[in-house]
Amino acid sequence: MQNTLVDKTFRDTEGNIVIAQMPNLPLVVWIVTSLLSLIFTSGKINTLLDLVAYGSLFTWAWLELFQGVNYFRRALGLAALVSLIVFKIQY
């Protein structure tokens, strides 16, 4: 297998093209807490759910940035991390 930029961008170490994967624990926690925050729309529970959702998505983005299986997944982690920071700065 050649080691082209396209291969480095979309293939993992085994040569499989990887764009999407099964969600890992931080992503599952983000999804669940985000859905729960739609149910509990006010109070301390909502604040806690927002904090846990933000922290888990930040963790997922950080893991993708530094441990992603290919350049695409690492770029996805970087984009999510930058978006999270920009969103928190604006609001």
Results as ranks from 00 to 15, higher is better:
Thr9Arg: 01
Ile17Phe: 06
Gly15Thr: 02
Trp60Lys: 10
Thr33Met: 06
Pro26Asn: 02
Phe10Gly: 07
Ile45His: 01
Leu63His: 09
Ala79Leu: 13
Ser56Cys: 03
Asp12Lys: 02
Glu14Leu: 07
Leu84Cys: 03
Val69Gln: 13
Leu78Gln: 01
Ile89Ser: 07
Thr41Lys: 08
Leu27Gly: 03
Leu81Ala: 14
Val82Asn: 06
Arg73Lys: 15
Ile31Asn: 06
Arg74Met: 08
Gly15Met: 05
Asn46Thr: 11
Gly43Pro: 01
Ser42His: 14
Glu64Val: 01
Phe40Glu: 03
Ala20Pro: 06
Leu48Asp: 07
Asn3Val: 11
Val86Phe: 14
Leu63Val: 08
Leu36Phe: 07
Leu27Gln: 06
Val18Gly: 00
Trp30His: 15
Phe66Lys: 09
Val29Gln: 00
Asn3Gln: 14
Ala61Leu: 04
Ser42Lys: 14
Leu57His: 04
Asn24Asp: 08
Lys8Tyr: 05
Leu27Thr: 14
Leu84Ser: 03
Leu65Pro: 02
Leu57Gly: 00
Gly77Leu: 01
Ser42Thr: 14
Tyr71Cys: 07
Ser56Phe: 01
Gly68Met: 00
Phe58Asn: 07
Phe40Leu: 05
Lys88Ile: 05
Ala20Asn: 14
Ile17Lys: 13
Ile39Lys: 11
Val69Lys: 15
Thr47His: 12
Trp62His: 11
Thr59Lys: 13
Val86Glu: 08
Asp7His: 12
Thr41His: 09
Phe87Gln: 12
Thr13Tyr: 13
Lys44Asp: 10
Gly68Tyr: 04
Ser37Lys: 11
Met1Lys: 08
Lys88Glu: 12
Pro23Met: 07
Gln21Asn: 14
Val32Cys: 02
Tyr54Met: 04
Leu65Cys: 13
Ile45Trp: 12
Leu65Met: 15
Leu38Tyr: 07
Ala61Thr: 00
Trp30Leu: 13
Ile89Tyr: 12
Lys8Leu: 11
Phe66Thr: 08
Thr47Gln: 10
Leu48Ala: 12
Ala75Glu: 04
Leu25Arg: 03
Thr41Tyr: 10
Lys44Tyr: 11
Leu49Gln: 05
Ile19Trp: 01
Thr59Trp: 15
Val82Ile: 13
Ile31Cys: 15
Gly55Asp: 02
Ile39Pro: 03
Thr4Val: 11
Ile31His: 04
Leu81Ile: 04
Thr47Val: 13
Lys44Trp: 09
Thr13Ala: 15
Phe58Trp: 13
Ile17Val: 13
Val32Phe: 12
Gln2Ala: 14
Lys88Phe: 08
Leu38Trp: 07
Arg11Ser: 07
Phe40Pro: 01
Leu81Asp: 05
Gln67Asn: 13
Phe58Ile: 08
Lys88Arg: 10
Leu78Thr: 02
Asp7Leu: 07
Asp7Gln: 15
Asn24Thr: 11
Gly43Met: 02
Gln67Val: 03
Asn16Ala: 09
Leu48Phe: 07
Gly68Lys: 00
Val52Arg: 04
Ser83Arg: 04
Val32His: 00
Gln21Gly: 09
Leu38Pro: 05
Lys88Val: 06
Met22Asp: 12
Gly77Ser: 07
Gly15Ile: 03
Gln90Trp: 10
Leu36His: 05
Ser56Glu: 06
Ile19Asp: 02
Gly43Trp: 01
Phe72Asp: 05
Leu76Pro: 00
Gly77Pro: 02
Ser42Ile: 07
Val69Asp: 10
Ser56Leu: 03
Thr13Arg: 15
Val6His: 15
Phe87Asn: 13
Leu63Asn: 12
